[in-house]
Design a protein around this nucleic acid. Sequence first.
RNA 1: CGGGGUGUAGCUCAGUCUGGUAGAGUGCUUGGUUUGGGACCAAGAUGUCGAAGGUUCGAAUCCUUUCGCCCCGACCA
Length: 478
Amino acid sequence: MKTAITPTRAENFSEWYQNLIVAADLAESAPVRGCMTIKPYGWAIWELMRDEMDRRIKAHGVQNANFPLLIPIDFFNKEAEHVAGFAKECAVVTHHRLKMIDGSLQPDPDSKLTEPYIIRPTSETIIGEAMSRWVQSYRDLPLKLNQWVNVMRWEMRPRMFLRTSEFNWQEGHNVFATHEEANADARKMHKMYGDYMREILAIPSIMGEKTPEERFAGADHTYTLEHIMQDGKALQAGTSHDLGQHFSKSFGIQFLGNDGKLQHGWTTSWGTTTRMMGSMFMIHSDDDGLVLPPFVAPYQVVIIPITREDTAEKLNAYATELGEKLRATGVRVLVDTSDMRAPDKMWKWIKRGIPLRVEIGAREMESGDVTITRRDIGRESKRTIQATDLIASVNNIMTDIHNDMVARVEKRNAEMIHDVADLDALDAALANGEIGFFRIKYEMTTNEQFEGLMEKYKITRRCLDDRDPTYVFVAKSY
RNA sequence: CGGGGUGUAGCUCAGUCUGGUAGAGUGCUUGGUUUGGGACCAAGAUGUCGAAGGUUCGAAUCCUUUCGCCCCGACCA
């Protein structure tokens, strides 16, 4: 059977992924090293994801703000671990003017900045500086801030959506009076992300704490959401950090308690990025292209009139009218009356992952029927129902699709997680070509033998198992 | 930054070794026949051959310089 995407997932997974992005018209690589242009269809998905995430963030009492893109270099210098973590991937702004020199436009040597700026790779430092002024009294706490911005990390190995030099994200930064509150907050945001990914993106996450080796630069605790791709590799899709007092001490975030004593605050930071989109595309899609979870699909339903020359006008009008009735139930509908052949339209929207396709031919227009096909299941789900029944049930169909998608990923995740008794068993499984996550006692991974396996198989510790933190998941990752 | 590739039509690439004035597939436009899971026929448009310099009667092709990108390593939301 011919597939819309070649090669297929089984033939070459990473090439399939690249072609998927292009075929679904989501993004293309930009004329800037490591960067991508997110195209309108891809951005529409991000806007839906962002809007829902933003609602949930605000429901936690967080306020949005916007901090500068450029960060003075000495801000970065204030937290030692943090510098070490990001120094190797920073873009630096050194000049403020261009000049024509020997016929080519170059930074004007006379415009060199006395102190360079770095383009933010993350904003703990510049937000920390602001917080040190904004937090004076215990009455100012908790202070909860978030921003939706782009950041830049000069990554060595870019991949569309998964790792680009520039990416968009939300970064939340909170301050509390006590460590208990801060840690509870980091966990709360972690859980919020997990719920969001399941309820909106139809992705059940592997959730847990990062081991000390894998922690964020400058954090006491890092809570992560790991996703399992169809090829068994891991992808970190979101994190929440308990930063302890590292940043409050580096930046002087201090307040007077109601006991009259001056003390340092306790901060958290938490973020999700456009990488979530990559995860969602990789997890749900198939050899015919994108499969979108209904709640973030820019169009949830596409109506395709199967026209002939003599019926086109009436059928297009009828389809448009049906589209209006469906829209009135709250679903996002596209009526494709464009000047293309019907089969071409079908493939176009299959590749773009629209959850439900509705086809209407001339006879159906007379009988009041429509033919519907679910994208997540494919042609086996094709059936003919009354248009009035579709209108009555379309929202339930969306929920069904979403729930089925969650269940499918949940089943696959379960199959992809393997318990291993010791390092020899892990070695044997990997040598045998087994893919997925391997669950092993954490204490078994803190030795040279494990270092050797990490090297040999390119595996890393993903996170501790929330259900029993003496166990750790290890896997290959993106 | 080390090792290996590559740059030619919107896209994917052939042509370079052996110099002779620009090609294929796909996409695009038009016309006709088609139309419920990727149609067919015909006609047509599209190029500073990454850039600069050199050799030559003549350069995509040979030489020199230079720039970009891709893959493998270190890094990572």
